[in-house]
């Protein structure tokens, strides 16, 4: 609710204020901020995601060639994820007179005295990095000085008001990480090949287009057919998290308790296996991970005993 209201407000003067903020934050003697009417706001309407993506690319080409400030409001970009195009809609992209492009992310969390919640800024930076990646091939195709800038403009409400404040966020690290992750992703086709024939996530919506008619357990079975690498971080990011967590708990996976545990415990991946190794009931004592576990278990038991003895004399 508030998010939409703030975004609408931040853009409602046709981008003049946003670009003024951008120039102020850049502070690098870029051409002075334009006055009212000095920002082009191309029409990006088209039908369907492909149409809108093509329309955005065209608008970017024209705006770059024009050598003026332009604000693309909710452009559409395509990014190839595991061989399948994903369509993305950033809040805005600004085209500078020199042909540079800046991704603009508008968020509803407050920036108090110029600083915002680090976790939220991090999430916004990761999101903006994906947009920057999607813009890169477009800029390459256009050539002619078109380039994606390293920093995104993060726009947030200033202090306790609804006025916009902004900060530049360096995206280089996030772009590199995301690029690596995308390169590593298994192709969707390969995943599909590994599934039982006929696996589908179709909800079989009824005629009203909203009510799913597919039996829940059938759907759950289909979801279970796909491998998952649940970790607690999923809880904040993925709607399937509770489902995956239940599965991960049922499998007694140590990773349910934290991603780092997996690395710490060597090859032992179930809670039972770790505890058995620690208790000396299983595992190879020559394995450094097992030896460390036994030492830890011994020290822990010994000190709990000391403390117990101390507190009940």
């Amino acid at each position: 609710m508030r998010g939409h209201a703030f975004e609408a407000r931040a853009k409602d003067d046709g981008g003049t204020e946003l670009i003024r903020l951008l120039c102020e934050r850049l502070g690098d003697g870029s051409p002075p901020p334009p006055g009212p009417g000095g920002v082009d706001t191309p029409d990006l309407a088209a039908s369907g995601p492909e149409g809108r993506t093509a329309r955005t690319a065209l608008a970017l080409r024209e705006a770059t060639a024009a050598g003026r400030w332009a604000l693309l409001d909710h452009p559409m970009l395509a990014l190839s994820v595991a061989g399948t195009p994903a369509y993305l809609e950033p809040d805005a992209v600004v085209v500078h007179p020199d042909g540079g492009w800046t991704v603009v992310e508008i968020k509803s969390f407050a920036m108090v005295d110029g600083a915002a919640d680090a976790a939220k800024v991090g999430a916004a930076a990761r999101q903006a990095a994906v947009y920057a990646l999607a813009l890169e091939p477009v800029a390459e195709r256009i050539g002619d000085g078109a380039s994606v800038r390293h920093s995104a403009l993060l726009v947030c409400p200033k202090n306790f008001s609804n006025l916009p404040d902004a900060a530049l966020v360096d995206l280089r690290k996030q772009v590199a990480t995301t690029r690596r992750q995308l390169d590593r992703l298994t192709g969707v086709a390969d995943i599909a090949d590994g599934l039982p024939h006929g696996t589908t996530f179709d909800l079989c919506l009824a005629d009203d287009g909203r009510t799913p008619t597919r039996p829940a357990d059938e759907l759950a079975a289909a979801v279970d057919a796909v491998g998952a690498a649940y970790a607690p971080e999923c809880l904040a990011a993925c709607e399937l998290a509770f489902h995956c967590r239940a599965r991960s708990r049922a499998a007694d996976a140590v990773q349910t308790l934290g991603r780092a545990l997996r690395a710490e415990l060597g090859g032992l991946s179930t809670i039972e296996a770790v505890l058995a190794a620690a208790a000396g009931e299983a595992g190879d004592p020559g394995d450094p991970a097992v030896a460390a576990l036994r030492r830890a278990a011994r020290l822990r038991a010994e000190s709990l005993e000391t403390a117990g003895a101390a507190s009940c004399p």
Partner: peptide
């Protein structure tokens, strides 16, 4: 997290009950 604390977490998961990480406040 030290390995000792990790063990406490794993024991808690096995027992369905929290385990101490400290013996005093």
């Amino acid at each position: 997290m030290s390995l000792i604390d990790t063990l406490a977490r794993l024991e808690a998961a096995r027992d369905g009950r929290a385990r101490p990480l400290a013996t005093v406040r």
